[in-house]
Design a protein around this nucleic acid. Sequence first.
DNA 1: CTCGGAAAAC
DNA 2: GTTTTCCGAG
Length: 621
Amino acid sequence: MKTPGDSGFAFPEWAYKPESSPGSRQIQLWHFILELLRKEEYHDVIAWQGDYGEFVIKDPDEVARLWGARKCKPQMNYDKLSRALRYYYNKRILHKTKGKRFTYKFNFNKLVLVNYPFIDMGSAGSGVPQSAPPVPSGVGTHFRFPPSTPSDVLSPSEELRSPGVFSAVARRMARGSVSDCSDGTSTNSELEEAGVVVADERPTERAFRSLLHPRLSHDSLFRVYGAPPNPPGLTRGGPHAPQHRVHPEPLSPFPVSPLPGPGGLLAPPLSPALSMTPTSHLPYTPSPSLSPMLGSHFSFNPEDMKRYLQAHTQSVYNYHLSPRAFLHYPNIVIPQPQRADKGLGGPAGVGHHLPAHSLHHPQSEEPHLSPFKFKLQPPPLGRKQRDGPPTSGAGHAPSVTPAGLGSSLSFGSEHGSVSGQGSNSSRLVNSSSGGPPKIKVEPISDIESEEEVEVTDISEEDDSCDVFAPPHSNGGPAPVPRHDATIADDDDLEEDVFKAPAAPGLGPALAVLKAEPREASPGIAPPSSPGGTRCIPLKLRFKRRWSEDQRMEAEADEAEDKKSRAEKEESIQEAEPKKLEENGERRSPVTLVAPLGTGQRRVSNELQRATAQLSLENDGC
DNA sequence: CTCGGAAAAC
DNA sequence: GTTTTCCGAG
């Protein structure tokens, strides 16, 4: 599959098969949906509509049928399919657009990131292979027009980027076909091509964000760095635009992306962290979607990276940023530099950490290192509010409320915001009739997975405290005592932290960070050690920070939606009242917009690619 | 229609 | 680990 036949290179499979990739198993529903969305043939049954990433299932039965065909589940129906879709809510892959029937919205951030972790496309620059906007318009980032007002849609800002790119894209797109059992035709060809670029966004993105600060968002970056590469206003034409559509644009969720050169925007090496750090104040982060773009383009030199790290580190310490942030870097970032050579984007280089073997052993991922192991799925915590609470212990009842915590915020926000309309609120608010205590952190978990993932900063902490204990070492479950319910988040975080294996790669970076780690000795002392105790406070501090970060992220995710809207609204005018609230918070939309657009675009490209690849997978039942 | 819990299938 | 299946509740 990875063959590169086409121009590009293909990435090793492992590259695009993150955890949930179809490769390993079967095609996933969201891949399938994306696939359908890309094909014009299916516009009658499902199509992009509304805001960025939003799509509507025009013919539920048909979609279900197609899905059933693909999965060889003749009994499939919309009820079931929709359940599967709902299942994505927790993963935050999808959201439901409230008030609109059969309308859902993708969270590209996650998708992209997850699935195509790192590939570096950054360099893509060279080529820009990536390019393909899936849909015609590049919708970019922010726009979110309500379906009703298509005209707006096209705000100039979105436009697309370079034409060249298009062509490539267009081709790709054209070819795809959905394959289902019945059809049988699957298209493999796409893959190869698609393979090309895909995605490194994630890492980068993450890295970036992290660096800056979780809260910082792209915009921040942009600001810092300067203007985004692509100013809005480019041309908008879609490559393959939709013929059928009357609307100006079908809204593709994917932003297009083109980044200018390799270095792209961000290239400027600097550490934003330093400058930005303080920003924690920023109200909001950019939408996730954006982020990816940044990442992709970025290409740092190792040196730069180091600088970043240092800077980051400092900032962390100085500002209490979460350590995690940087952890990511080492693995992620660093690698990129190497890839630079590849010029075309070759196989990307994803990382060098594994480069070698990565290619050779497609499947093997690095056990320890894999910095990117993101899992889409966080543990869906069960929300068993309704039934009884099985969990004995908890007295807490129903738990939950998503809204309660930050994490939930993000999710909630979606619901919430929208919810204005509906009854959701009830849900959100929910029951917690009385028990405030237990918080459910579904979202959080997600977040965690994304952000922290493996990266773990543990090392960092270790240094300072050695908290980091090998997971098993003591056997003791939590080395650290539970802080308290209030901090539920922390738990999750902690877990991650602890779990995370020490990252080998970190070494250097860490070294830098920690001036002198004590004896870093070999075994990291388990909690039992005195050191551990000492650490706690520090740890707590971090945790707290993390929690916030996460929360922020979550919000950000949501925010993104809103944000988009808000921006849109401003520029255009607002259609709906609900968002207003958020607007207030948001900073000037303008600034955000530009950057976002770019980012999304990029994302979109990748997504498309990804999609294309995915399509290959399926096949006969 | 939409939401999720739960359990069973892959 | 995801999806399917079933289902009760808004």
